[in-house]
Amino acid sequence: KTVKFDGLQFDFDNPEKALKFALEVAKQKGAEVHIHGDEIKIE
């Protein structure tokens, strides 16, 4: 899975870790997590 935000991109082999990371970043930024297939966007 790939996590994208602020023009940055982070690749994870483990989908659970990717989602956990995305949710943590979103919480800190006050943003929402959007999942599109293998891509997780924080907006």
Score class of each variant (00 low, 15 high):
Lys1Ile: 14
Lys1Val: 14
Phe12Gln: 01
Lys17Phe: 10
Phe12Asn: 01
Lys27Thr: 08
Glu39Asn: 06
Ala31Ser: 07
Phe12Gly: 02
Ala26Thr: 02
Val25Glu: 07
Leu23Asn: 13
Glu43Ile: 14
Val3Pro: 01
Glu24Asn: 00
Gly37Pro: 07
Gln9Leu: 09
Ala26Val: 03
Ala31Met: 14
Ile40Gly: 01
Gln28Ile: 11
Ile42Pro: 00
Gly37Gln: 08
Asp6Glu: 08
Gln9Asp: 06
Gly30Phe: 05
Thr2Asn: 05
Ile35Ser: 03
Lys4His: 11
Lys4Gly: 06
His36Tyr: 13
Val33Met: 06
Ile35Arg: 03
Phe5Leu: 06
Asp38Phe: 09
Lys20Trp: 08
Gly7Phe: 06
Gly37Cys: 15
Asp38Gln: 10
Phe21Cys: 15
Lys29Gly: 07
Val33Lys: 02
Leu23Val: 11
Ile40Val: 04
Leu19Ala: 00
Ile42Phe: 06
Val33Gln: 00
Ala26Asp: 02
Leu23Met: 12
Gln9Asn: 06
His36Asn: 12
Lys27Leu: 11
Leu23Gln: 13
Gly30Arg: 06
Lys20Glu: 14
Lys41Ile: 15
Ile40Pro: 02
Asp38Lys: 09
His36Ala: 09
Lys17Gln: 13
Lys20Val: 05
Lys29Ala: 10
Lys1Arg: 12
Lys27Ala: 12
Phe10Thr: 02
Glu39Asp: 07
Glu32Leu: 13
His36Val: 12
Glu43Cys: 15
Gly30Thr: 04
His36Lys: 09
His36Arg: 09
Gly37Trp: 10
His34Arg: 10
Lys41Arg: 14
Val33His: 00
Asp6Asn: 10
Leu8Val: 07
Phe12Ser: 04
Gly7Ala: 04
Glu16Arg: 03
Glu43Ser: 11
Lys41Trp: 15
Glu16Gln: 07
His36Asp: 13
Gly37Leu: 08
Phe21Met: 13
Lys41Ser: 13
Ala26His: 00
Ala31Gln: 07
Val25Gly: 00
Glu24Asp: 08
Lys29Ile: 14
Leu8Pro: 01
Ala18Ile: 01
Val3Gly: 03
Gln28Asp: 08
Asp13Pro: 05
Glu16Leu: 08
Val33Glu: 02
Glu32Asn: 11
Pro15Phe: 15
Asn14Arg: 00
Gly37Asp: 09
Ala31Asn: 02
Val3His: 03
Asp13Ala: 07
Ile42Tyr: 01
Gln9Ala: 09
Gln9Ser: 12
Ile40Gln: 02
Gly30Ala: 06
Gln28Phe: 04
Asp13Lys: 02
Gly37Glu: 07
Phe21Ile: 14
Glu39Tyr: 11
Asp38Leu: 09
Asn14Tyr: 00
Glu43Trp: 09
Val25His: 00
Asp13Glu: 10
Ala18Arg: 01
Leu19Gly: 00
Phe5His: 04
Lys20Met: 11
Phe5Cys: 15
Lys4Phe: 13
Glu16His: 05
Leu23Lys: 10
His34Pro: 01
Pro15Thr: 12
His34Glu: 07
Glu32Gly: 10
Leu23Cys: 15
Leu23Asp: 14
Ala22Glu: 12
Glu16Tyr: 05
Asp13Gly: 03
Asp6Arg: 01
Lys27Arg: 11
Glu43Gly: 12
Ile40Phe: 05
Ala31His: 08
Asp11Pro: 08
Thr2Gln: 05
Ile35Asn: 00
Lys41Pro: 02
Val33Pro: 02
Leu8Thr: 04
Asp38Trp: 09
Glu24Val: 00
Ala31Pro: 01
Ala26Phe: 00
Ala26Arg: 00
Lys41Cys: 15
Ala26Gln: 02
Ile40Trp: 02
Val25Ser: 00
Glu16Pro: 00
Ile42Thr: 02
Phe5Arg: 01
